[in-house]
Write a protein that binds this DNA or RNA. Sequence first.
DNA 1: AGGTCTGTAGTAAAGCTTTTCGCAAGCGTT
DNA 2: AACGCTTGCGAAAAGCTTTACTACAGACCT
Lengths: 346, 346
Amino acid sequence: MNKRPSIKDVAARAGVSMATVSRVLSGDYPVADETRQRVQRAVRELDYVVNAHARALHGATSKVVALVVAEVTTPFFARIAAGVEEQATEAHRLCLVCTTHADPDRELDVVRLMREQRADAVILAGGVVENDDYRERMRRYAQGLEDAGSRLVLCARPSLGPDFPAITVEYENVGGAHAATTHLLTAGHRDILMIAGPVGLTTSDQRVEGYRTALTAYGRPVDPALISHGPWDREGGYRRTRALLASGTRFTAIFAGNDGVASGAMAALREVGRRIPEDVSIVGYDDIPNAVDFNPPLTSVRVPQEELGRTAVKLATQRSSEASGREHVMLGTHVVVRGSVRQIGA
Amino acid sequence: MNKRPSIKDVAARAGVSMATVSRVLSGDYPVADETRQRVQRAVRELDYVVNAHARALHGATSKVVALVVAEVTTPFFARIAAGVEEQATEAHRLCLVCTTHADPDRELDVVRLMREQRADAVILAGGVVENDDYRERMRRYAQGLEDAGSRLVLCARPSLGPDFPAITVEYENVGGAHAATTHLLTAGHRDILMIAGPVGLTTSDQRVEGYRTALTAYGRPVDPALISHGPWDREGGYRRTRALLASGTRFTAIFAGNDGVASGAMAALREVGRRIPEDVSIVGYDDIPNAVDFNPPLTSVRVPQEELGRTAVKLATQRSSEASGREHVMLGTHVVVRGSVRQIGA
DNA sequence: AGGTCTGTAGTAAAGCTTTTCGCAAGCGTT
DNA sequence: AACGCTTGCGAAAAGCTTTACTACAGACCT
């Protein structure tokens, strides 16, 4: 009913100037106590709230951090989002969430929108196919965002080098895969299937890399026939495991590229009567919350997703004077041992 | 390096007025072809993007919808968020996500922030403790948001009546619980434990309500000793199931208030050697994506979370002329049968 | 020839807050 | 009594875009 009141209305009601109202509200400038009280009463009576856009119009950026991800339902991204949101709130920022479904066009749109919004920070999270097109795109984003006063943050994906004007927050992805594979090797497994994600996707490639280094460090050859690339969701894990089983490939353990793949693989194994872990051991990656409910409980690699999100925001919002805007941090991972791996004869 | 260019710079470069640039950009007003080209070239050369805040300052609202939830990591909320985000994108809106951790103070803050932002719509999602304080709070929110030109949407929580100025998008929560309980009853179970959430929480209360109506409709008494209230996460399900087992309460089936509770209950049952479903049958609620991976796969009630989110945005963003702003829609639920319920002797 | 459209484009105001600058009053100092 | 500092507050500009209004040229009509 009532028109939304403006600062002018408050000023009139309190019998002061707009400037005084503004000063009372931001509280950064001395105002006589009695004046302050009058203004605050007027604000309450009119139920006045400032217009964030008018405020942002003046400053360099608005108090918003944007999270850009492929999708938001899988635990991996949901937990990054949770970390971003929490830290954003702590830093008195709002949290904007955009999904791209891994579509570069959509991503371009989103980054432009964020420039329009003058977001403090734009956090691009999750693995990518890291080709020339990607690097060129990122270079343009970085330029545009820098001009707009925004910080660009690469989260859960590789850095583009110390010269690239972006903050990077990664996790020990190769290391986690190395540890997971080593866990299987020390349990006596030799023929370890790796059911990875799409070729070229950084997250998956790094996990394959860790798998390779672990085998090599253990003095074992890397058999390309044991590495399967493809869609890395439950369905992909299921289909490829069925196909591998049908093809007669011999293996006693599976290293799944993520827990979704692991769940599909476990379903496939059960369908053909292979027991876990008696016949086949399996390790997943990401340690989704329900990994403990699997049959059997799934050994997996814990990734500090919330921490990734929090750190991204923390670095992006710290006062620019003390920040280079090119920080690079690496967070740790570790294997969470449950019941899906069996020791076999040395 | 370059200062962010304004529309004035573009106008100067193209040799036209600011108004013309604005018109080329919004495309709602005839501009001569050659002029348009000049402007577009200037825009490209300067890499100009409009200032969303200056634009919003002019209009009544900004193109933003806000989702306010307790938390964002559990599949229930993550999927609502996904639906909201998708539909927001489709409606050319940005999606702001805020969490309250079920803290009314935090909620109050968030709603004020949304008023400052002049969001098109504010979607409050998830169950609540519906007392007088809550209703009074909502009334204030509704008033404030209406004045600010925003729409208030209640999502996955009960309507506050047809007179209340809010859109409501619910799901058949009582009905789903009724169906789940009936599913157990028709399988021959008589002593059905209900492990519910906190007393007063609408989502939980409605599920208890469905449990009761199903028993009654089946001609069975409702035994209060079989209804357990408490925290409804995995931990709560585990603890309470252990306690109930220790107390010697007799039951052949469990209706869990949600899948988190169900997973905890299943863990507890396994620990004491009760087999599922041979000794105890169990049905969950929400049908989280990994329910199929449980041991055994969990029969659960499917809730259309994405659809709840999409519908909330759809109703809130449709042109006001054709919308009353008090729509009330109810989406369906259904039982997804898997392997956690066993038929027992009639 | 004078008048009415039509198509383009410029002018200026509106929208709301923050911030710089300046002014005035009070008070202590010299 | 003149001076200068502090405190408190107002006037006005800046920040950027949209839009109602105005203006003008040429086409078309009568």
